[in-house]
Design a protein around this nucleic acid. Structure first.
Lengths: 347, 347
DNA sequence: TCCCAGACTGCAACCCTTTGCAGGAAGTTG
DNA sequence: CAACTTCCTGCAAAGGGTTGCAGTCTGGGA
């Protein structure tokens, strides 16, 4: 079913059919109605590829995430996809498996078929980013980049809330299980941690970096137990969940002997035992916002406007049962920091 | 960067550039190398939309899932996307929010931009399916449909394993928490349950239907406690996780007082407390298989072959700590089935 | 030396829409 | 009644590729 079939059956030219869809006010009422009726009857829909060829807009947007196995990203994806659909755009999805080179390749491959790409927790270096930024409009989520639209989360404030919570409970010594070094979120969480640590007097040692996965949490838990901390701040919920599991296996009671705090607020943080205290970050909202910013940018771009819109969303500590006052005598303490741990100082 | 720029710089015609990419054996070695070198230098990549316009193939495939919030689907998606990428195809993703009408609309909207669509746990009625099947090649995952490629899972056998496990532990009476009525998986799981029930003598009452979500599990747990069963078989892990949570809240020990079995084998089933006994179904493998079947079909189609390939993947009961022998005297029993429960008989 | 096959390459049409431009009809104004 | 507007519609080009067909060039056989 092409535009010509419809044109023929409605006894008009293809141009008129086209206009009936794209600029309805340009065609006389009865003509338009006849065309649309015929189009509906035969199930005609404009071919977007052909349209895109001439208009330069594909009505597609790309979305690239590091790992669909981390529920954080499906959540962002869900928001983004819903918002895109609302604007009558379709979304291309790709998963990089936390691999920055693959990310670059995916951008190159997608660039021509989309109007822009939303990059979620991009792991690209600045150099890599510059190599692709001219290919298609890029929007970043959970990563700060100059001169393009970005959707951020106030990670530092989230960490402040978490550390203040621990301090209020009486903790004096905590461990941070670091995330990927290429992650902006990790850098920001460390930064927030450092300043909250100074402000509250809670000492924080850093372990890792760890892959942002459950398995890494299992591994991390043992390292934590070799130190004398009474609380653990994990880079994300997946790691925290791993810690919870391994601590249970080792017979360490949470929260009585050890407090654990996650980050992200994935659904499962509420479903485990004990329910995990975590810092909730916006996920679907971030996805929606990113698509919105991208679409706005594209609109304005045609008007010659510049980019650089930034939206920062708040975080909220969700206190559940994985945190409590520290034990009188710290359990499992061996009196000194384990090998591999180090004071959290400057980068 | 169009094919003409490259042609000009390589001092050949556009046709030759095109052939250098699509039918390299048709162009002389040194010409081809020159063309490809130039193309690489200027960063040229064929515009797939333009190519698709004339070849009729888009090198895109669609994937539609009911709910990205259920980790089952991101897992399938991950497999599908990886396999598609391997075949140099991109994937369009959409989420229906468990809504069959939206599913139909999404198929219509996608049809023109893809070579085929993979439908995951489709909720469409037969009538709806027939209304869209001519739009574009459809492949189904987790749903049986005649004459098109499908990837199935042996749900009935999974249920057999689960029920035999319960029977072996000594359970005589269990509840099934049913899933969505439009779900093929739910029908198959019920069927397997019925026959396993007969074979083992374990009585099974059915509750529900429930939405395949955590919250529904919370709700279901109370209904279960109002019956005299000693074990619960949930439609899926999300519901089982909800049951686990609510039982813990109500002070019912799992597995001592109540055994709980999930279905799907999502990652989180292993991370909760107690770790959930569940029936593992292939997820990434199913996604990969679906894409493979679809691509094969498309290849053969051009050769005039027919469709209908079917791949059935096995299931595996993963025994963890949420199942054990029933208590001597069934806890919370009130001697009769709750209102709303009914014997599991025919449909 | 001539003819022919085989290997390459270029021309031009085509895929499906959109859109600038121009033409025709109807209505308005002087 | 002539001269403009205004409104609507069609023609044709364009957008970036692919591909059937025909032409050029080369090498080999007679």
């Amino acid at each position: 079913m092409t535009i010509h079939h419809v044109a023929q059956r409605a006894r008009v030219s293809a141009s008129t059919v086209s206009r009936a869809f794209t600029t309805p006010e340009m065609v006389r009422r009865d003509t338009r109605e006849r065309v649309l009726r015929v189009a509906d009857e035969v199930g005609y829909r404009p071919n977007r590829a052909a349209r895109g060829l001439i208009t330069g807009k594909t009505a597609n947007i790309g979305l690239i995430v590091p790992d669909l196995g981390n529920p954080l990203f499906p959540a962002v994806l869900k928001g983004a996809q819903a918002r895109a659909q609302q604007a009558d755009h379709a979304v291309f999805l790709a998963d990089t498996d936390e691999n920055a080179d693959l990310e670059v390749n995916l951008i190159k491959a997608m660039a021509k078929q989309v109007d822009g790409i939303v990059l979620c927790s991009s792991r690209m270096s600045d150099k890599q980013r510059r190599a692709v930024e001219s290919l298609t409009p890029l929007t970043f989520v959970y990563r700060k980049v100059a001169d393009v639209p970005i959707v951020l989360v106030d990670n530092a404030d989230g960490m402040r809330q978490a550390v203040e919570h621990l301090a209020a409970l009486g903790h004096r010594r905590a461990a941070y299980l670091a995330g990927p070094q290429a992650s902006w979120s990790n850098r920001e969480r460390r930064r927030g941690l450092r300043s909250a640590s100074r402000a509250t007097g809670v000492d924080v040692i850093e372990l890792g970096p760890f892959a942002p996965r459950f398995e890494a949490g299992l591994q991390a838990a043992d390292l934590v137990l070799a130190t004398d901390v009474t609380a653990v701040l994990a880079y994300n919920d997946l790691i925290a969940l791993g810690v919870l599991n391994r601590l249970a296996d080792r017979g360490v009671a949470v929260p009585e002997q050890m407090s654990v705090i996650g980050f992200d607020g994935i659904d499962f943080a509420a479903m485990c035992t004990p329910p995990l205290t975590t810092v909730l970050i916006p996920k679907e909202a971030a996805g929606r916002a990113a698509v919105e910013l991208l679409l706005d940018w594209l609109d304005q771009k045609s008007l010659g406007h510049t980019a650089g819109a930034q939206r920062t969303l708040g975080t909220q500590l969700i206190v559940r049962s994985s945190t409590a006052a520290p034990p009188r005598v710290s359990a499992g303490s061996n009196g000194r920091a384990a090998r591999g741990a180090r004071q959290l100082k400057g980068d």
